[in-house]
Design a protein around this nucleic acid. Sequence first.
DNA 1: CTCCCGATAT
DNA 2: ATATCAGGAG
Length: 210
Amino acid sequence: MELDKRILKILAILRKTYPDAQIPLHHKNPLQLLVATILSAQCTDERVNMVTPELFKKYKNANDFAVAMQPELEKSIHSTGFYKAKSKNIIGCCKMLVEKYGGKVPNRLEDLVQLPGVGRKTANVVLGGVWDIPGVVVDTHVKRLTYRMGLTKNTDPEKIEQDIMKLLPAKDWNDFTMSLIYHGRQVCIARKPRCHECPVSELCPKVGVE
DNA sequence: CTCCCGATAT
DNA sequence: ATATCAGGAG
């Protein structure tokens, strides 16, 4: 079967399997999603959700983060790991938001990626989660699943992003990546993928799966 | 390619 | 005790 036919079938099944696949990061505004997503680097969303309620009670806007004392911020986010780098990035990031964007989160990928601690993955999560702007989020799950499913031969996240964008219309990018992430967490897990309970098993060449 | 780091499952 | 989870910067 042709690649572009196969990916559409996979998407249709995943949509039915995970009808309300959405960003699991708790947030009430663009800034909160941006900060939560920075924190989610190399950390589970569940853990991020454990620290953000207190964090957002203490820091309510970009300026609060911009003038934060780093050691204090470090304490608030400690359990998410890489807390020194993340604190530094969040402060630097929010300083830039205040100086260049009036304390608001910009809605263009090129701008977001300039912010400290924000790469393409984080930027695309924010664009999709806040403004529903189409984008392919390539996190560790999307990287692993697209490769296993034979939808890309690349291992570089940016190349994978391009490959998927070529295979699907823009309106499907967000649904596809969100449902892939859910599927990657529950069924097509890294260690021992549960191929027997996988609804897209028939459509999957299982590249690199033992 | 190396460094940044804690939490949980095994 | 050790493996696994899970992005970005330099």
